[in-house]
Nucleic acid binder design. Sequence first.
DNA 1: TACCGACCTGAAGCTACTTTAGGTCAAGCG
DNA 2: CGCTTGACCTAAAGTAGCTTCAGGTCGGTA
Lengths: 120, 120
Amino acid sequence: MRISEVAERCGLSISTIRFYEKSGLCPFVQRGADGKRKFSKADSDWLELLASLRSTGMPLEEMRAFAELYASGDDKIAERKAALLAHRRRLDDRQTELDRCRVILDRKLQRYAEIMEDQA
Amino acid sequence: MRISEVAERCGLSISTIRFYEKSGLCPFVQRGADGKRKFSKADSDWLELLASLRSTGMPLEEMRAFAELYASGDDKIAERKAALLAHRRRLDDRQTELDRCRVILDRKLQRYAEIMEDQA
DNA sequence: TACCGACCTGAAGCTACTTTAGGTCAAGCG
DNA sequence: CGCTTGACCTAAAGTAGCTTCAGGTCGGTA
């Protein structure tokens, strides 16, 4: 698969994919004789997972550690699961924060609506 | 109110508050004769609102524009409401993305659980 | 043959902070 | 009284996570 296709699939930009490779988040991506990256289905899936971890706030450093576990195969499954469970909790925190902000925002919008009512 | 109290209340760090002031997000904060910032209740509330906008992804540039509307008082209420409504939609997008990532994460955790089952 | 589009690299630029270095001032203590 | 401590101040440098830019290599097409 070409880099543009993978970008399309996983929702990361082409430069972000290159940046991730350079940062050691997917060091296993192959190259063709022409020097271009060749992505397998597994590579694409991995980048999609990375994208969803990143977009919910996992730091690159932690993703790099996770990538290393991933690279050393199924005997690190327990550690990989632990890493994702830790992130799962962070996701719940995000949800809480999102709800909290929604309340603040909606209250403010309500107040604005009332002021505009009075002005009319 | 001292800067440390405001930081406590609104959940921003002291340096972030100073940085926000320098960036024009709260140019109205008063100073004492000693040069120290003196925050009113309104200042604190404003920073709390900023914090919740920021933590749900509003860019500083947009916050700065919002701060300008805020500074010019109640005749800009309609525009302020429009800005918050636009952000409200962004918040919904975040929610959608969060849900999407939760599904991916939970599916992955499920897979790991199965693999560990097989290994046992 | 000349150009186009998709890829490549390294380096600089950008956003939103955080950290550091160095300084002021009031309060408390021996 | 001098000394330290702690909370504040500033300007500047550092950091994370990208994005953009400048410049170069291909394979295919008019």
